[in-house]
Amino acid sequence: MALDDPDAITDDALLVLFANGDPAAARVLTTRLGPRVLSQAWRMLGERDEAQDVTQEALLRLWRIAPDWRQGEAKVTTWLYRVTANLCTDRLRRRRGGVPDIEDVPEMADPVAPVDEQMQQRTRMDALQEALNQLPDRQRQAVVLRHIEGLGNPEIAEIMEISTEAVESLTARGKRALSDHLAARREELGYQDD
């Protein structure tokens, strides 16, 4: 089947096409979902290479489950976020006690911004990542999904297999902890007191 307008095809339908042997569907799904998985893994792990490995592994699991995928039962993105979260949690557990390498903090500066502004943005993003790295796994996961991936609490609850109230609690505590971490660096990060 030709994918003339891939944007018009749902993730579910693309997965079914893939299960029926269409490699073009894999390309569309990779372009559409890969960046989200990479972003989530990057924020969860704070390490580029590991985040890429997790992205590859999460998508490999998606390819494998394609023949058994039941359309309409779950959102592909929800399933993928859950798999990514679990893969990240496994890796974090394995390296428990280790200190994240500051060199590996994501470098995501706006290329059109002036150099000093770029540097400040990068410093702030690095600071956010460092603060995220200090959070307990579950809090970090909830905060990333809520405030960076922009998901709603019910979907996060489904991904993390907890109640919506528990998600609210985790994100609130996470935000508070992040704020505490960042408060000490306000001046360094270029924030002015009112």
Binding site: G34, D110, M125, I148
Partner: peptide, 21 residues
């Protein structure tokens, strides 16, 4: 401050900069 950081992170996460290598 935190919301502004989240907004920036969200823009980057969903922008071209997070395109797959």
């Amino acid at each position: 401050d935190l919301d502004a950081l989240f907004a920036q992170a969200r823009t980057e996460a969903h922008g071209e900069q997070m395109a797959l290598p």
